[in-house]
Lab assay of single mutants.
Amino acid sequence: RKEMTAACTPRRRIINLTSVLSLQEEINEQGHEVLREMLHNHSFVGCVNPQWALAQHQTKLYLLNTTKLSEELFYQILIYDFANFGVLRLSEPAPLFDLAMLALDSPESGWTEEDGPKEGLAEYIVEFLKKKAEMLADYFSLEIDEEGNLIGLPLLIDNYVPPLEGLPIFILRLATEVNWDEEKECFESLSKECAMFYSIRKQYISEESTLSGQQSEVPGSIPNSWKWTVEHIVYKALRSHILPPKHFTEDGNILQLANLPDLYKVFERC
């Protein structure tokens, strides 16, 4: 597991931080080997919608929660590849102030007048994250320049770009939802926020969305749709870069829909 690298990086740093090793061990302890084997050997059937997909393993048909699986995938990559990410360069710098204002204007932020003026909160978020810029760049390849612009994001899987519609809320939550006081809790909560931002979430995906850094293989055609990215990038990574937690067998994120021999018997009677 320590050699797990989802995106190509030129050289690998050895990380011996106790906090990170502890988080890696927790993933191992909570892992479910049968689910790992199923995901490793599954045959992708198709997307139901951005949140759900169908896959077959041996004779069984499964309904998989793409949102939760991708979130767990990105969390584990962030923990196992800690401080070893490439950088996704933004085509132009994104001012943190503008991103924070967009987030505060969104109902998702939960902002009320009692929280104070949005401009003041946005300025605080910019200054707060600028103070964390060195650590964010060093460990997470999340790059913020001296003017308070976001200029780079971590490359977690080759050819995958997170849904940038979720970027404003991500920046807001970096400042408000991460435990910045304790090292282990900081790395864990920061990785979880980043994983949620990178995950496939239906509120940020339309039929026209593209999450891939590449064009489709047909010359002159439109960019790959999110469905292509889910199948050929995300579920491909799920084959080798995730140890599913045991609770996925109990919380409805992986559901067995049918045993195909039983279905064949039904059709034979028709």
Results as ranks from 00 to 15, higher is better:
129 L>K: 01
22 S>T: 13
69 L>F: 05
175 A>D: 00
39 L>W: 02
57 H>E: 07
150 L>S: 02
71 E>L: 05
220 G>W: 08
13 R>V: 07
200 I>G: 01
34 V>M: 10
140 F>C: 03
112 T>H: 12
34 V>Q: 11
119 E>I: 12
4 M>Y: 14
129 L>M: 12
109 S>T: 13
132 K>T: 01
204 Y>F: 11
196 M>Q: 15
205 I>N: 04
71 E>I: 03
1 R>I: 13
123 E>R: 09
46 G>H: 15
215 Q>N: 12
107 P>Y: 09
157 I>K: 02
16 N>C: 08
191 S>G: 13
172 L>K: 10
270 C>V: 14
87 V>H: 09
99 L>P: 02
69 L>M: 05
146 E>L: 14
192 K>A: 06
45 V>R: 07
175 A>N: 04
125 I>R: 02
69 L>E: 00
108 E>C: 07
83 A>G: 15
234 V>D: 01
41 N>T: 11
77 I>Q: 03
168 P>N: 04
150 L>E: 01
94 A>I: 10
107 P>Q: 13
176 T>L: 10
184 K>L: 12
127 E>V: 09
267 F>A: 15
182 E>L: 10
260 L>V: 14
213 G>F: 14
23 L>H: 02
215 Q>F: 06
213 G>Q: 09
154 P>N: 02
118 K>W: 03
128 F>I: 14
105 D>W: 03
97 F>M: 14
144 I>V: 07
264 Y>K: 15
85 F>D: 00
172 L>G: 05
268 E>N: 08
246 K>D: 11
128 F>E: 07
252 G>C: 11
139 Y>I: 04
49 N>H: 04
159 N>C: 10
114 E>G: 12
48 V>Y: 05
136 L>G: 01
204 Y>E: 03
72 E>Q: 09
85 F>G: 00
22 S>K: 13
255 L>A: 07
161 V>Y: 07
13 R>W: 10
141 S>I: 02
220 G>V: 13
176 T>I: 12
167 L>C: 03
164 L>N: 04
218 V>E: 15
142 L>C: 08
145 D>C: 08
259 N>F: 04
222 I>E: 14
251 D>H: 05
95 P>H: 11
47 C>Y: 11
168 P>D: 04
194 C>S: 05
166 G>N: 04
12 R>E: 13
49 N>Y: 02
147 E>Q: 12
87 V>Y: 12
115 D>C: 06
93 P>A: 15
8 C>W: 08
182 E>K: 11
259 N>I: 05
177 E>K: 06
86 G>I: 04
199 S>C: 05
94 A>T: 15
223 P>S: 15
56 Q>H: 15
164 L>I: 08
231 E>H: 04
91 S>Q: 14
234 V>T: 02
26 E>T: 09
118 K>A: 06
99 L>G: 03
179 N>V: 14
28 N>K: 12
158 D>L: 10
252 G>P: 07
5 T>D: 06
18 T>G: 08
160 Y>M: 00
132 K>M: 04
116 G>H: 06
129 L>D: 01
169 I>R: 14
255 L>D: 03
223 P>A: 15
146 E>Y: 13
155 L>Y: 07
212 S>L: 14
56 Q>R: 15
114 E>T: 14
16 N>F: 06
194 C>E: 01
90 L>A: 03
108 E>L: 11
256 Q>M: 15
144 I>N: 01
266 V>N: 15
126 V>K: 09
98 D>Q: 09
238 L>M: 12
126 V>M: 10
75 Y>M: 01
268 E>S: 07
222 I>S: 14
151 I>K: 11
238 L>K: 00
67 T>M: 04
25 E>K: 09
157 I>G: 00
185 E>Q: 12
33 E>K: 08
231 E>T: 03
232 H>K: 06
89 R>E: 15
247 H>P: 04
171 I>W: 02
224 N>L: 13
33 E>H: 11
107 P>K: 09
252 G>R: 05
148 G>I: 03
86 G>H: 08
2 K>R: 10
120 G>H: 07
260 L>N: 10
268 E>H: 05
197 F>D: 00
40 H>Q: 09
235 Y>T: 00
56 Q>W: 06
109 S>I: 13
61 L>W: 05
55 A>H: 01
94 A>V: 15
269 R>W: 05
147 E>S: 07
85 F>P: 03
171 I>S: 01
8 C>G: 13
121 L>N: 09
203 Q>S: 13
253 N>C: 09
121 L>F: 09
121 L>W: 11
187 F>C: 03
87 V>M: 12
166 G>E: 03
185 E>D: 13
88 L>I: 12
235 Y>C: 03
53 A>E: 00
7 A>M: 05
144 I>L: 10
251 D>S: 12
90 L>E: 00
82 F>L: 05
10 P>I: 13
175 A>E: 02
204 Y>C: 05
110 G>C: 15
174 L>S: 02
6 A>L: 05
41 N>C: 10
203 Q>V: 08
42 H>G: 04
152 G>M: 03
150 L>V: 11
130 K>H: 08
22 S>C: 08
35 L>Y: 07
39 L>M: 07
171 I>Q: 02
130 K>W: 08
253 N>V: 15
240 S>T: 11
173 R>F: 01
64 L>V: 08
164 L>H: 05
222 I>G: 12
120 G>N: 08
189 S>T: 12
12 R>W: 12
5 T>L: 04
165 E>L: 07
250 E>H: 09
184 K>D: 05
151 I>T: 15
60 K>Q: 10
261 P>C: 08
59 T>E: 14
152 G>K: 05
222 I>H: 14
216 S>F: 11
172 L>T: 08
105 D>A: 13
193 E>H: 06
260 L>T: 15
68 K>V: 11
30 Q>G: 15
132 K>R: 09
110 G>W: 10
105 D>P: 03
206 S>L: 09
127 E>Q: 08
15 I>Q: 05
1 R>M: 15
5 T>R: 03
223 P>V: 10
66 T>W: 00
143 E>H: 10
232 H>M: 05
156 L>Y: 01
189 S>L: 10
97 F>C: 10
23 L>W: 02
20 V>D: 02
268 E>Q: 08
269 R>H: 07
163 P>I: 09
197 F>V: 02
10 P>T: 08
114 E>M: 09
167 L>G: 00
21 L>K: 15
66 T>I: 01
196 M>R: 15
221 S>M: 15
194 C>P: 00
80 Y>Q: 12
234 V>H: 00
102 L>P: 00
264 Y>W: 10
265 K>A: 11
176 T>V: 09
241 H>P: 02
199 S>H: 00
29 E>M: 12
35 L>A: 13
46 G>T: 12
43 S>Q: 13
260 L>S: 12
72 E>G: 03
264 Y>R: 14
123 E>C: 11
48 V>R: 03
170 F>L: 08
63 L>K: 04
104 L>I: 09
1 R>V: 15
52 W>K: 01
242 I>N: 02
18 T>D: 12
146 E>N: 08
94 A>W: 14
29 E>S: 07
19 S>E: 04
5 T>S: 06
220 G>P: 13
254 I>M: 10
267 F>M: 15
210 T>F: 07
268 E>W: 04
57 H>M: 06
246 K>Q: 13
49 N>F: 02
145 D>E: 05
